[in-house]
Amino acid sequence: MNQKYMLPLIGVFLLFLLAYAGVEGANMQWAFGIIFPYLAVILFIGGFIYRVYGWASSAVPFRIPTTCGQQKSLPWIKQNCIDNPDTASGVFVRMVLEIFLFRSLFRNTKAGFARDETNRLSFSWEIFLWVGALAFHYSFLVVLLRHLRFFLTPVPACVRFLEYLDGIIQIGLPGIFLSGIVLIAAVLFLLARRIFDGKVSYISLASDYFPLFLIIGIAATGISMRYFTKVDIVSVKEFIMSLVTFHPSIPEGVGGLFYAHLFMVSVLFAYLPISKLMHIGGIFLSPTRNMANNTRAKRHINPWNYNVKTHTYEEYENHFRDKMIEAGLPVDKKE
């Protein structure tokens, strides 16, 4: 037992109970169905703008050439144009690959002692974090986009097509959506990694576990509503549409589980700007990824530099040229 994950686990459980009991026991549909979701949207958008604006206002550091390939150099040395770009287009490709394929995670290594008598420390490639992260992020994206069917009427063909692809294995009724299963499996794997891998566990804090538990809670309630406990989807959609058209009205017969799901989603969105989940916006501003390595080609002036008075060699020579020629010293320009 470890309080770093027990506390967030209990916290998420209490959030669930709060909404479930608030609706089933105290009939507080208006709070969990209307007030908290609107509040969450405001906090999410406001907080996101505040955070990114803060980053935008801070000074851009000197280009950091921590790269994974050959820098632009002499013409006969082959440059790695994507891993060590010196142009904006190279940086663009590097950013696209980072955002869509998580290449930094792909390079993940793990350290370990050899199990024989040499007991040597060695590093090996560790791909599972990358696999788990890709599965998690993409299934979450699909789940999120699929939920657009509750926010749009009529539902656009692209969302229908996504649903069709997601439900392509046609098992059971209502048919299984692959993304839901992949999402819960991936998030459980990422959680297990934090708990059981001693080195990761050591650096994990409550704020690492909380979003994981929250997402597990959201996925579990969603899966439960779709496949097991059931909810009247048509009334739910009518309710969501009433929220997005600003005529909120509480549906009849929709139970506490739906409000618990909605409340946990609201908490996730409201919490996002003050948490590590801000990497949604932050990844675009990764200083080691989004700047070209052209420090030798272009002069970068540090924005907070003190204004130092300089005296270049050219100025020096201009000043002493006559005397230098007189003394027989070599000069660049002979007047």
Partner: peptide
């Protein structure tokens, strides 16, 4: 960055 932020907010408020 501001341009990106505006795009994000418009997309997030799409519904």
């Amino acid at each position: 960055i501001i341009v990106g932020l505006v795009i994000f907010v418009v997309a997030a408020l799409f519904p």
